[in-house]
Lab assay of single mutants.
Amino acid sequence: MPVRRGHVAPQNTFLDTIIRKFEGQSRKFIIANARVENCAVIYCNDGFCELCGYSRAEVMQRPCTCDFLHGPRTQRRAAAQIAQALLGAEERKVEIAFYRKDGSCFLCLVDVVPVKNEDGAVIMFILNFEVVMEKDMVGSPAHDTNHRGPPTSWLAPGRAKTFRLKLPALLALTARESSVRSGGAGGAGAPGAVVVDVDLTPAAPSSESLALDEVTAMDNHVAGLGPAEERRALVGPGSPPRSAPGQLPSPRAHSLNPDASGSSCSLARTRSRESCASVRRASSADDIEAMRAGVLPPPPRHASTGAMHPLRSGLLNSTSDSDLVRYRTISKIPQITLNFVDLKGDPFLASPTSDREIIAPKIKERTHNVTEKVTQVLSLGADVLPEYKLQAPRIHRWTILHYSPFKAVWDWLILLLVIYTAVFTPYSAAFLLKETEEGPPATECGYACQPLAVVDLIVDIMFIVDILINFRTTYVNANEEVVSHPGRIAVHYFKGWFLIDMVAAIPFDLLI
């Protein structure tokens, strides 16, 4: 008679799926529990143990900040960024110097990925580790590398530091407007667009060049630039800015003055950032001319202004700041037409079709709590990747769950009947059967004279019903998954307890 339990259901295979997918890609990662103190490590794979030199037993239950890997060259700011990422709910990448158990130093890129439950609360953290440099290539500990984003994938490793954006290309926007319009339909740009040429040739750093990471940081200074100062900065030398009595002219307006920039070969870094931020506020060169004239017309309804409409929906549905990093990277690809469009465009503009998908598509409701890094690593669709929660398995109709209350009560009843059979069957065979043979035949009273025979008949009927119930009862397979398919249940029961239950259900007393 089957006594099969499996009270692990309803099970959740999400954690096993993450481990299996990460292991298949030869990654070095740990999984931490966000619900406990210090976000203790609950799993670390073999790749991480080989990377740091510690065994799994030495890593388990330690804080996922990996303070046991810190050393003299470990930056405090990087460690603080990892700790801050564990307090938030967004994906974050941090470069930090770690030390192995043998004392060797290596520069590592740590990717902190939160995993949320159905309520939107962070319950786990996945920390992925990628070695960037070994100890002989690690720089000085005073050099802070965590304020910069990861290198873009479309640049060669040897040319990542030679990417320079020439400031004269930004200063000569109005001069290039006529050349853009003359391109017409034969050019790649839309009317009114501004073409910015980027020099990728390796050259020595000069005062006129600005690194790509500095251009990325310009967006942080746009908020500090007032509207009046932006307007004066875009007017140009024809209309000098008016300053109040006793007030000095704005240095932001002076930063885009061609006369002032041409007199000296070098520009201050602050002026460069502010000038680029001011130019980015204009949607095209037409807006710059309109600002000089004193009238700013409404933005025209053409394809170039609607190019950012799908980007707005993608940004609203993005799951991490990696989408913004990807957008900034692609927006700086050289030799393309940049349409400086305000994100607050007309909502009635139709979304044009684009061959290049900048932001990841909208994630469906079932995966809105899973970050983009987890979705990318697992390579699963929205119909396959579940949320991290207890999910009731989908069972067929008329199927009994093996952990249901009805099955528990039924098993206790069958257990009592088995005990009765084990006690009274030998007793009936030894004593009652002998008395029946010696006594007179009682054929007239039937079952009324033999109450134990009636009980034995009921017990046999219950055993037959138990066999039928076992054909529709779920079970737990070797992978700790609840199986509810009727065919698989029948095959599993035939290979197991079916023969024993059938022999126990045969009414031998009635056959004798």
Results as ranks from 00 to 15, higher is better:
Ala188Tyr: 05
Leu107Phe: 14
Ala277Leu: 07
Gly187Arg: 06
Lys21Asp: 12
Pro300Phe: 01
Ser55Trp: 01
Val341Pro: 15
Pro2Ala: 05
Gly47Gln: 11
Asp213Met: 12
Ala360Val: 15
Gly149Cys: 06
His221Val: 10
Asp219Arg: 10
Val195Ala: 06
Leu173His: 15
Val279Leu: 11
His368Asn: 11
Leu225Arg: 15
Asp346Gln: 11
Ser179Leu: 06
Asn146Met: 10
Phe348Val: 11
Ala40Val: 11
Asn220Lys: 12
Ser207Asn: 06
Leu171Asp: 13
Asn45Met: 01
Pro10Val: 13
Ser250Ile: 11
Val138Arg: 14
Gly306Val: 07
Pro352Trp: 11
Ile330Met: 14
Leu210Ile: 06
Arg159Thr: 11
Ser140Glu: 14
Gly47Thr: 06
Leu167Tyr: 08
Pro72Val: 05
Glu37Asp: 08
Leu69Trp: 01
Asn317Lys: 03
Leu315Arg: 09
Gly47Leu: 08
Gly381Cys: 15
Ser255Ala: 07
Cys265Val: 12
Ile336Pro: 11
Arg56Asn: 01
His368Ile: 11
Asp287Ala: 05
Tyr54Pro: 01
Pro202Ala: 06
Ala85Val: 01
Ala160Trp: 15
Lys332His: 10
Ala244Gly: 09
Ala78Ile: 01
Val279His: 12
Gly224Val: 13
Leu256His: 13
Asn146Trp: 15
Ser153Gly: 09
Ser182Val: 06
Pro150Ser: 08
Val377Trp: 04
Ala156Asp: 07
Pro347Asp: 04
Leu225Thr: 06
Ala203Phe: 06
Met291Gln: 11
Pro150Arg: 13
Cys64Arg: 01
Gly139Asn: 07
Met60Thr: 01
Ala142Asn: 15
Asn220Ile: 07
Ser206Trp: 05
Arg312Ser: 08
Lys161Tyr: 01
His309Met: 05
Asn117His: 09
Thr201Gly: 14
Arg328Lys: 15
Ser313Gln: 11
Asp111Pro: 01
Pro299Cys: 12
Pro352Phe: 04
Thr319Gly: 08
Leu338Thr: 15
Ile31Pro: 01
Pro240Tyr: 15
Gly186Ser: 11
Asn220Leu: 06
Gln376His: 07
Glu95Ser: 09
Val138Cys: 13
Asp197Ser: 01
Asp355Ile: 12
Arg176Ser: 06
Glu177Ser: 14
Lys362Leu: 11
Leu165Cys: 11
Lys373Asn: 01
Leu256Met: 05
Cys105Met: 15
